Simulated assay, not measured.
Amino acid sequence: MLRLTCPCCGAAADETELAPGGEAHLLRQGPGSSDDAFEAYLFQRKNPYGVHFERWRHAHGCGKWFHAARDTRTLEVFGTYSAQVSAPPQDILDRIAEKHPGFSSEGGQ
C-alpha cells in the first residue's frame, strides 16, 4: 500500500485517505491558448514506469493538495512537498539521483 506524508499537516496517510490528482507541474492552458496547446494540456500526460511527480489531496485529513515524488515500479516515495512550487525541491531530486544515476527531472531516466 502506498503511504504518503502530507507536508501540510504532517500526517502519514494511506492511499485510501488520499485523492490522486494526476501529474504534477503541468503548464496550465486556458482561453488564450491555441487548440493544440489546450488539447495537449487536457489529454497528453506522462505515464512513466519509474520516477513520477504527482499531485495528491489529503481528502480524509486536512483537505489540502500537495506533490509527491515516487517510483511507479516499486512505490518507493522520495518525498512530498508543497503544491505551491513550480519544481521539485533539490533535496528530493538529490534522493532520486542517488537511486537512479543519470536521472533528469526534465526527461526522466
Rank of each mutant, 00 (worst) to 15 (best):
Y81P: 01
D71Y: 06
K64H: 15
D36Y: 11
L26Q: 07
P31F: 12
Q44V: 13
G63R: 09
Q84Y: 14
L18W: 04
V51K: 00
E15F: 14
R57K: 11
P31M: 15
T16G: 12
E23M: 04
F66W: 06
H58S: 08
T16Y: 12
T16K: 09
G79N: 06
F53K: 00
R73V: 07
F78E: 00
K46V: 07
D35F: 11
P48R: 03
H25F: 12
S82C: 11
C62V: 02
G79V: 06
R55G: 11
F43H: 08
R70W: 11
K64L: 15
E76N: 15
H52Q: 12
V85Y: 08
V77S: 00
W56L: 09
W56D: 01
R57H: 14
Q29S: 10
L42A: 08
A69W: 00
P20G: 03
L42P: 02
T80P: 02
F38E: 08
R57G: 07
P20E: 09
G61R: 07
P48A: 04
G50C: 01
Y41F: 10
V77I: 05
S34H: 09
E23N: 04
P48M: 01
E39R: 15
Y81E: 07
S82Q: 09
E23A: 02
F53A: 02
K46R: 10
E54H: 05
G79D: 04
F43M: 08
A68I: 05
Q29I: 00
F78R: 00
A68C: 10
T80W: 01
F66M: 02
T74Y: 08
V85Q: 09
H52C: 10
R28N: 11
F78C: 07
D35A: 12
F43P: 03
T16C: 11
W56C: 05
R57N: 14
A59R: 14
C62E: 05
V77R: 00
N47V: 00
